[in-house]
Write a protein that binds this DNA or RNA. Structure first.
Lengths: 109, 109
DNA sequence: ATTTATGTTCGCACAATTACGAATAATATT
DNA sequence: AATATTATTCGTAATTGTGCGAACATAAAT
């Protein structure tokens, strides 16, 4: 009866999830994780899409906080944002653990 | 130089993430996790949106595999899909662990 | 056979996303 | 100063997402 209230944690979870909700962005995150140094050109080079589109995907990941960019003229170095990566990791882990269907709560099993 | 190939695992990860990428859908998942039995009406009752919209969000979650619906005329019972929930849990855990910025790989720290 | 209760689907409107090429900005290099 | 390199932003188009009320489908109850 009482309405649901969406918590800031849930908002953040959704924001992270949304940013990860595209195959190309998942691929970018994976690519970044395999590199010590990663410039925009390196990412664009391995993706079959226009640089403008790559830039948009990087913006989405950056705005969600999952990655960060550092200007090293005339290049831009990208990498995973360690702090927020850790936050996301914990939020998702908590969700998957706490919300896990148990014997008590598996109505459809 | 060699192009990135998006793996089926990455596709699935993105599919799960996309489904979780909306606050209302996160709230629905949380709500389901707190209930033994949960019918459409119960969900609609606690959300400030039209039933048509609730139905759409449930469809999105169901198509991604995160939840399942069982018809119990004239009601429909929803719950988290335990098997796929487990799959998602492992895929995200693997990503957050394996792709975690380490000392060796923290270019921006 | 109607009526009632419960959800889904349809049709519409509007916003957001994804993609591209072209134009722009910023900074080294010549 | 002019040029070259690098990446972002602009403008546009096509697709997808979000939301609503109305209409529909289904099955139980009268």
């Amino acid at each position: 009866m009482s309405k649901i209230e969406i918590t800031p944690e849930q908002e953040r979870l959704a924001r992270f999830a949304k940013a990860m909700g595209h195959p190309t962005r998942i691929a970018i995150l994976h690519f970044l994780s395999q590199r010590n140094e990663c410039f925009f050109g390196d990412i664009h080079e391995v993706l079959p899409i226009a640089k403008a589109t790559v830039s948009q995907h990087l913006s989405e990941l950056k705005e969600a906080g999952l990655i960060q960019g550092t200007i090293e003229p005339p290049k831009v170095k990208y990498c995973i944002n360690p702090d927020n990566w850790s936050v996301a990791k914990q939020l998702f882990a908590k969700m998957f653990d706490d919300w896990c269907p148990s014997k008590k709560n598996s109505c459809c099993s």
